[in-house]
Design a protein around this nucleic acid. Structure first.
Length: 480
DNA sequence: TGGGGTTAT
DNA sequence: ATAACCC
């Protein structure tokens, strides 16, 4: 039975051909896709065929966090403001015509009663975001974050365990929770249906737990891959969930009005596709794959072509702790080195706090700028360097002044990018810490001896023999 | 147009 | 280091 998982190459995307291939493979190994076969099947949880994925999407996340912080805002139209934008708003505000990413002036015109709160400091949103991810990780450890307000969870194994707990006669009593996409009828003799229904039950439990424990509402979509789960979660919108059964896959993908609504097809790709006369999902599905590969490269072409059929074999990758920490600030104009330094110091101060709380040590720092009138959208430039080990040592201790050496490093990066002897005009500064390494990651290797804090060596025990110095030594000799 | 994030090249 | 993608 093990080989079932290895041999199957089909995706279980809901595509009819895939389904038939799947059923035939099952027949080959002696398991029928029927009710009787359920308990005999070793479900292919180790590969991409026939998965159960949930996408969880919080309703207007920042606005929800603000309403929890200040319940008086709850029944008022509320917008969260960053600079000149209303980045998100609650449903009261949406009823009155406020949209996401709307200009503040426009939003106030549309809705003079709109209450605005500043959301430029993401600290509380970030914290709540990780509470959500951690809650979902209690269900299954395989949770992938997408931004602050969305998570994918691979429920395949969990569904399988629940099915194994059921008696045969209980299988015919499995019910759905939430909506079924396209009002499709459920076939309780279809194992794929049964599995997705159990997924819908788990999704409901997740949303219930999010509400009971964190006070947050959100949507969920359950389907056989990430693409479809994400599309399904958006079908019924605030605080509802929907499950997609395989037979309605094409209905869902064709319900999109334009290819740009397919997650994975972004701004640039859309422009390129439009230039080729491709606008609808059907246009893309039927377009020459050879020409597409020439225009977009084989990788992108093959991926988005599959996406257009609702096929997505990308796994749910557990996000774990963040790969980077960054803080940015945008402004109308920064044209002096002194002002840049002040702004960089502010960004750095917040970042050092965050890094300290995380516990890991960044080994790389990056400075990002945006110049005025530089093509606007992705006119960002960056310079990075590794952080000297003696500075890394001081990170997170709070006892030493790490600001001064870090600011020095960042200003060197700044002058490397910006000729300060010439006039300049910046509209954004950002500092990023990345290449994070854990302390005490006792890896096998020749340096293992030096990695243990309990054995300070003569070379440094005279001056500093306490734990921070020793663990820092670990980092300075880390494999690079 | 914000203030974040990720991966691929 | 940049460019694409995501929110």
């Amino acid at each position: 039975m093990e080989k079932l998982g290895v041999e199957l190459e089909v995706e279980g995307s809901g595509n009819e051909e895939d389904y038939e291939a799947w059923a035939m493979e099952l027949a080959d190994v002696g398991a029928a896709g029927s009710l009787q076969g359920v308990h005999d099947q070793v479900l292919p949880t180790q590969n991409s065929s026939s998965r159960v994925i949930v996408h969880v999407d919080l309703d207007c996340f920042y606005a929800q966090v603000e309403m929890i912080s200040n319940p008086e805002l709850k029944d008022k139209p509320l917008g969260v403001q960053q600079k000149y934008l209303v980045v998100t708003c609650n449903y009261e505000a949406r009823k009155l015509g406020v949209k996401k990413l709307m200009n503040v002036r426009v939003a106030k015109e549309k809705c003079p009663q709109l209450v605005l709160v500043n959301g430029e400091d993401l600290t509380r949103y970030r914290e709540m975001s990780y509470k959500v991810t951690e809650l979902l990780e209690e269900f299954s450890p395989v949770v992938e974050r997408l931004g602050f307000d969305e998570n994918f969870v691979d429920l395949t194994e969990m569904v399988e365990k629940r099915l194994q707990q059921l008696q045969s006669d209980e299988l015919s009593a499995v019910t759905v929770l939430g909506h079924v996409y396209n009002n499709q009828s459920i076939n309780l003799h279809d194992i794929l249906h049964i599995r997705l229904l159990v997924g819908s039950q788990i999704a409901a439990e997740m949303r219930e737990a999010m509400y009971n424990r964190l006070g947050l509402t959100g949507c969920a979509g359950v389907a056989s891959n990430k693409l479809l789960a994400k599309l399904a979660s958006g079908v019924f919108k605030p605080n509802q969930q929907t499950v997609l059964l395989p037979e309605s896959c094409q209905h869902l993908i064709h319900s999109l009005n334009h290819i740009k609504e397919i997650p994975g097809i972004g701004c640039k790709t859309t422009k390129c596709l439009e230039a080729l006369g491709i606008n609808s999902v059907h246009d893309l599905q039927t377009f020459s794959s050879k020409i597409l590969e020439k225009e977009l490269g084989i990788s992108v072409a093959q991926r988005i072509l599959k996406l257009s059929f609702g096929e997505d074999n990308s796994p749910v990758i557990p996000s774990g702790p963040p790969q980077s920490f960054s803080e940015e600030d945008s402004f109308k104009k920064c044209s002096s080195e002194v002002e840049a330094k002040k702004r960089i110091e502010e960004l750095l101060a917040s970042l050092l706090n965050r890094v300290c709380r995380d516990g890991r040590k960044p080994h790389t720092v990056r400075l990002i700028i945006r110049r005025y009138s530089s093509g606007k959208h992705h006119g960002r430039e960056s310079r990075q360097c590794s952080i000297p080990s003696h500075v890394i040592q001081k990170l997170g201790t709070g006892n030493y002044d790490v600001m001064t050496p870090m600011v020095d490093i960042l200003m060197k990066l700044f002058r490397n990018m910006v000729n300060v002897k010439m006039p300049f005009h910046l509209t954004l500064l950002s500092v990023c810490f990345c290449n994070l390494k854990a302390l005490n990651t006792t890896k096998k290797g020749p340096m293992d001896y030096y990695l243990t804090p309990s054995l300070p060596t003569a070379s440094h025990s005279g001056k500093h023999s306490f734990i921070l110095e020793v663990t820092s030594f670990d980092l300075s000799v880390d494999t690079k």
